[in-house]
Design a protein around this nucleic acid. Structure first.
Lengths: 235, 235
DNA sequence: GTCTATAATGGGATAGAC
DNA sequence: GTCTATCCCATTATAGAC
């Protein structure tokens, strides 16, 4: 109704106002960024591909062109950063396992090796990393039977196992199952904290802020380290 | 096509096979039960009113007749048990505040007063209570800006505040903000544990079960009690 | 209060021009 | 690679018979 009548004017529209953004990688990245941000806030079912495309400023069809389906897009969001994220934590753990000294010092190094790389990325990784970490926590709080959770599981289960083994190694006086329970409590707390539900901010009347990760880490490590003492860890 | 042709036979269908379930309260309760179970597993957006009606064995229209909208139904699910649930916890806290003895004993009484009534309902409250508690944890892990979260907030914020004040009262040697951080960590861990994401079961290879709430409570209370010692609580 | 039918909208996905 | 238009189905919600 509009284009056909003007077709005959040929290629005169050289100085077209529309930017030429025929660059697939950039477009795909924009879609991933938007999906990351929206999935992190409202979950897999709470976001439509239309929402994501609108946020990215691209037509709906491009999300299908680049990723095929909504589930694939979700997986791609996880995959984009999973390796780098897990590697950073694994390196921190490796460093912590070299720490020598009293049991308490070594234990706190290991405990800190999980949360410190995460806090670092939250503070200096930019908005993409913030959204990614929030999304990971969000997914970890969902039933693991859900299909879309599987890419998350594959990357992080072995990582957690390595932490439990490292703690068990420096605490031979503890029952291994108690080590596992303790680390599960720690992991559980982190998982809730990182979704930034806003509960702490509200309940404290603003005195404590759940996005003040520096303050949070400084409390988290000694608190959970002391928790292991409650299970008979020597110091 | 079917009913009209037989209409003339009058009221001979006295022994009709279909049960007369013209009892609104029972039907409404069935819808609430199904909604509770499904929302607890897949969240607000992950469940359709069709899913709920099918699970309840009632026509779709009845969910609108009894509750008006999906959001209202969600609120009704929360409201049905919120008072009884919160009262049980408040009573447990009141009992814990009467406990005398060493600081550690009194502190563990308060810490246990949050999780014990919940574990009790999980063990003996029947499937409805199990689903309800899982749903509460699920909601607590969602951004508090979401509209459907507000009925949750209204019931539980003041409850948590009472716990923090009770702990602060028996630990005047602690900085009040540290008490608040510690209880937030505790609450955060519980919030993740109660969604039963299945992480513990998988990571432990089945050695630990996140639905073994008796074992969990016996570990949870001493662990988090010890955590407060890491913040300088006397024992 | 219950139930069938349908309205009205939004969802994921695709065809085909450019 | 990009974009418009559209298919087809699921969704919430309502109208109206019983």
């Amino acid at each position: 109704m509009r284009g056909n009548l003007l077709k005959m004017s040929g290629e005169v529209d050289a100085a077209a106002p529309k930017v030429d953004r025929r660059r697939a990688p950039e477009t795909a990245a924009r879609i991933l960024d938007s999906a990351e941000a929206l999935f992190a806030r409202r979950g897999f079912y709470g976001v439509s591909l239309r929402d994501i495309a609108a946020e990215a400023g691209v037509p709906l069809a491009l999300s299908h062109y680049h990723f095929g389906s909504k589930e694939n897009l979700f997986s791609a969001v996880i995959e984009r950063r999973a390796g780098e994220h897990a590697d950073g934590i694994a390196q921190a753990l490796a460093g912590a396992m070299q720490v020598r000294g009293r049991a308490r010092v070594r234990r706190e190094a290991i405990i800190g090796a999980l949360i410190r790389p995460i806090a670092q990325r939250l503070a200096h990784g930019g908005p993409g990393w913030k959204n990614y970490i929030r999304l990971l926590a969000f997914v970890a709080n969902h039933p693991q039977e859900e299909d879309y959770v599987s890419p998350f599981r594959q990357h992080y289960d072995s990582l957690i196992l390595a932490f439990v083994q490292a703690l068990a190694a420096i605490h031979p006086e503890m029952a291994p199952l108690d080590v596992q329970w303790g680390f599960f409590f720690y992991q559980a707390a982190i998982t809730h904290i990182l979704v930034e539900s806003g509960m702490l901010d509200r309940q404290s009347g603003g005195a404590l802020r759940s996005d003040d990760f520096t303050a949070m880490v400084e409390r988290l490590v000694p608190f959970f380290s002391a928790g292991f003492r409650g299970f008979g860890a020597r110091d």
